[in-house]
Computed example of a mutant assay.
Amino acid sequence: IHAAANKQAERTTEAAELRRDGHQRHAFDFDAFDIDVLVLDAAQWRAKDLLTSLAPYVETYGMTYRNVVLLEVGPHRAVLPERWNAIPGKTSVAKPALARLP
């Protein structure tokens, strides 16, 4: 959220609005997370019409897909076991369930 707000440069009003919105969505700060492997409830996202509600963040603030997912999900996520995101040569997983190229 802060990285996207910092990119607003001279658009200080927009940067403040983005920070305020992010802090209103989530009570506490949270660590960013990797979305290279992402499992989500597509029916829930459709029911909430998230693609439509998140599109203005891309259009207005130039946020990336990763930025808007972090904005929406915040700290409310589950962490997958490492075997579901094994990277050959970077992770040590005996029986990977999903391996991706580095």
Rank of each mutant, 00 (worst) to 15 (best):
I1G: 15
H2I: 08
A3W: 00
N6E: 15
Q8Y: 04
E10N: 13
E10A: 12
R11C: 07
T12C: 04
E14H: 07
A16K: 15
E17G: 07
R19H: 02
R20E: 13
R20L: 06
D21T: 12
D21M: 14
G22C: 04
H23M: 11
Q24T: 15
Q24G: 07
H26T: 07
A27C: 02
A27E: 09
D29H: 06
D29P: 01
D29Y: 08
D29R: 10
D31R: 02
F33K: 06
D34A: 02
D34H: 01
I35W: 00
D36M: 06
L38F: 15
V39S: 01
L40S: 06
Q44N: 05
Q44I: 07
Q44C: 01
R46H: 05
D49L: 07
L50M: 08
L50T: 06
T52L: 06
S53W: 03
L54D: 03
L54H: 05
A55L: 09
P56D: 01
P56H: 08
Y57I: 01
E59K: 14
E59H: 13
G62N: 02
M63F: 04
Y65N: 03
Y65V: 08
R66N: 12
R66H: 13
N67W: 03
L70A: 14
L71K: 13
E72F: 12
V73Y: 09
G74D: 09
H76K: 10
H76C: 03
R77N: 11
R77W: 01
R77L: 15
A78T: 04
A78P: 00
V79Q: 15
V79H: 11
V79I: 14
L80Y: 05
L80C: 03
L80I: 06
E82M: 03
N85A: 12
N85Y: 11
I87E: 14
I87P: 10
T91H: 14
A94Q: 15
K95M: 03
L98K: 10
R100I: 15
L101T: 09
L101W: 07
P102L: 05
